[in-house]
Design a binder for these strands. Structure first.
Lengths: 153, 153
DNA sequence: GATGCAGTTGATAAAGATTATCATTTATTA
DNA sequence: TAATAAATGATAATCTTTATCAACTGCATC
């Protein structure tokens, strides 16, 4: 799975005329193995540990490129802080974000397609993708259990 | 409707021990009459035209406060740019964002409650709110009509 | 394998956005 | 009206993101 993603991304870049450079490959490989939802800074820090000398600007540029080509998805967990995740082919999921501890839980069920056709008809809009994020409290942070993290939403 | 919102927000602030200051009232009144989805800078500029001397820091502080008290909602239209809208009581809608011109269309239909109970049961998460945003092309920007705006997403 | 070139990179400056600080002002209560 | 804590505006400080540009590199061609 991970290897397929890496190969697909490499082919995608080349097919669109982008070069397969060291920094780009390092970023793709790192992301393919990342299960969480890192932000730019985390990506930068992790890459630099194995690829010293990489510049933050390159991380910004590459992430933007991967977003554009559809190999990454951006989600908003905390305000003013985008986080990224691999856009595995065929995968479709959304996020539960805990307001207490900041934990992110993925869930796959989504019934949006039941109404998207109707919305398209009424609004004459062509929907290409959607993002659904739910906010609340995870089991550990529900009242009664006082396990709130200090991380502020 | 607009007046009710203003009064409700005023009461809300006072009930929670916050003072009803000139800048706060000006921001609340402006937002109550705003139909779009302004960002911080737009709010600041508009307020300053009728309330010269207001500081940008106060706008940040007040918007954060109104968000916290539930009188505002934040949405992500362009990456790294939050926009705000009044959280009218009882209103529940989502957004279609056109990748061509940036236009935002609101739609009310949302069938998320059909599955949210199931998600809560499986994940033991208590869902308090959710955000759904769909991206695509509005009728004017569909291929064939070349009316793309220069504003980049 | 060497060469040429456009695309890419890293460093860093510049621009923008957000937050922190603090003296002054103001809403509210008594 | 006076006392008080909260709020404000100015601005410094901090972060984040983008722009610039000389140096470098992947890749196509020979």
């Amino acid at each position: 799975m991970k290897e397929i993603y890496i190969e697909t991304a490499k082919e995608g870049l080349q097919r669109q005329g982008y070069k397969l450079t060291g920094p780009r490959l390092a970023i793709i490989r790192y992301l393919a193995g990342e299960k969480g939802h890192p932000d730019i800074r985390q990506i930068f820090t992790r890459i630099r540990s194995e690829h010293p000398g990489i510049g933050i600007a390159t991380v910004y540029r590459t992430v933007d490129l991967l977003l554009e080509l559809g190999f990454l998805r951006a989600i908003t967990i905390k305000k003013n802080q985008l986080r990224y995740e691999v856009n595995w082919p065929g995968d479709h999921h959304h996020h539960l974000v805990c307001k207490g501890c900041g934990r992110v839980i993925e869930f796959g069920s989504c019934n949006f397609q039941l109404i998207s056709k109707e919305i398209e008809k009424v609004t004459r809009f062509r929907i290409e993708e959607h993002i659904l994020e739910a906010y609340g409290l995870c089991h550990d942070c529900l009242p009664g259990k006082q396990h709130y993290s200090t991380e502020k939403m």
